[in-house]
Computed example of a mutant assay.
Amino acid sequence: MTTVYLDHAATTPMLPAAVEALTDQLTAVGNPSSLHASGRHARRVVEESREQIAQALNCRPGEVVFTSGGTEADNLALKGIYWSRLRSSNRGPRILSTAIEHHAVLDPLHWLGQEEGAEVELLPVDTTGRLDVGALKSAIERNPDDVALISVMWANNEVGTIQPIDEVVELAGAHGIPVHTDAVQAVGAVPVDFAASGVDALTLTGHKVGGPFGVGALVVRRELEVTPLVHGGGQERDIRSGTIDTPAIAGFAAAVEASVKSQADHHVRLSALRDQLVERICAIVPDAIRNGDPAHLLPGHAHLRFPGCEGDSLLMLLDARGIECSTGSACNAGVPQASHVLLAMGCTDAEARGSLRFSLGHTSTQADVDALVEAIGPVVERARAAGARKGS
């Protein structure tokens, strides 16, 4: 049975350029911190990769700090900036974020609140999943000196809504408050310009842009002090110690470069496929409801609610037909609970449980959409029948 993969927001297949760059380095020997010829060769690969990423994102090479992925980069940004701000700036303990962040942000914030005395304020979003900028403004102006940092994701991983980062930066900048953004879903999908955005720290990861697992980066302005989480050899500006993975970094950089170069074409093609997917599904299932902000949306995200259905049932019925999608973040897979993103958008628990995310990527085709459209009618019927039997 042919697999129809519609879960690119969880991870996307590696790009050929990334595979080539990775495999070219797998048999090379040399620690990038060693001084001999092999070490210098490895260091050159790492620094050239750093320059590739910097050029793609319009930042300085020295602002790219390599990590093991998005979760580590988010933790480093939130904890490292918070600690530094409290120590060196005499700022207050408040951290402002949103209720729809990925758990790689929410869980460190929760930890900072429990263990470090941080006062975390999760700001509301509207029914499309877009930040209430007025609420952010009020939260800042209540006492700007108490705000250590602000963290707002560039685009939501579940519903695909793009956040008003420019407005966040403007409000924060007026009071000298640093802004971190988790841009894991945005890089390669929409234009991401670090310098022009005005953010102070930005998270990205390899496997979302067609690179390998286990590698990512925190792009952080040189002027911003960040307290390290890991201490050791002082690699990566002494912000993130540890021997860095030269092959993975080479593959990561190649993927970032390739995905950013093709972003405009990618956006046009995937937006058209996604809009067709939504339109055709809604024609077959007329009461299906689209989640997210159609005016500010990632090109590959289609998040739909199917009244009377359990999302887990829909997912497994589609999976049995070789169609792979998700009910939300892959990081919460196997946990039968309603999406915190949809609940924050005003959905009831039942509504949140009845949604599916179809996410398209660079390997998605018309045939994938056709297969989903062909399957969705019978699958929804079976899921509703199963729900009715369960209810009775």
Score class of each variant (00 low, 15 high):
A155Q: 02
T67C: 13
A350D: 09
F306Q: 04
D287K: 00
I95S: 10
Q263K: 09
R40M: 13
L317S: 11
C347E: 09
F66M: 11
A253E: 08
A344I: 02
A172S: 02
V220T: 14
S89Y: 12
V335H: 10
L149K: 03
N291H: 11
T67A: 13
E374D: 15
L57W: 03
F358T: 02
L78T: 12
G92R: 11
L317I: 03
V120L: 13
D312E: 15
H175A: 11
Q263D: 02
L106R: 15
G62T: 06
H207Q: 15
K79I: 15
A21S: 08
N143R: 12
V187N: 05
L270C: 04
P108Q: 12
E351L: 09
L356H: 05
D146G: 14
I323F: 01
T23D: 15
L35V: 13
L109D: 03
I100E: 07
L273I: 04
I95E: 07
G216F: 08
W83F: 12
Q276E: 14
R50D: 10
P124S: 06
A99T: 14
P247Q: 05
F306D: 01
T27V: 09
D275R: 06
R142L: 11
R40W: 03
L218W: 07
K390R: 15
S339V: 04
R382H: 04
M14L: 15
A18N: 06
R290K: 13
L26M: 15
V120E: 13
S262R: 14
R269C: 00
G39D: 14
A375M: 01
C282V: 02
Q25W: 12
M14R: 10
A258Y: 01
A371F: 06
T363Y: 03
D7R: 12
G242F: 08
V278A: 04
M345T: 12
D287R: 00
A350W: 00
P124L: 06
Q235I: 00
A250E: 05
G160V: 09
S33C: 04
V226K: 07
I162R: 08
S355F: 00
G39Y: 10
W83T: 07
V159D: 14
E51Y: 01
D293Q: 05
G377W: 01
L229H: 01
P13L: 03
Q263V: 11
V4L: 01
G311C: 04
R305D: 00
E310V: 00
L57D: 02
T127C: 07
S241G: 09
T227L: 12
S33T: 13
L136S: 09
V256R: 02
T227Q: 15
R43I: 07
N291Q: 11
R353T: 01
L202N: 04
S262N: 12
T12A: 14
W154M: 10
K79L: 14
E310A: 10
S197I: 12
R43Y: 13
G117F: 08
C309Q: 03
G198C: 12
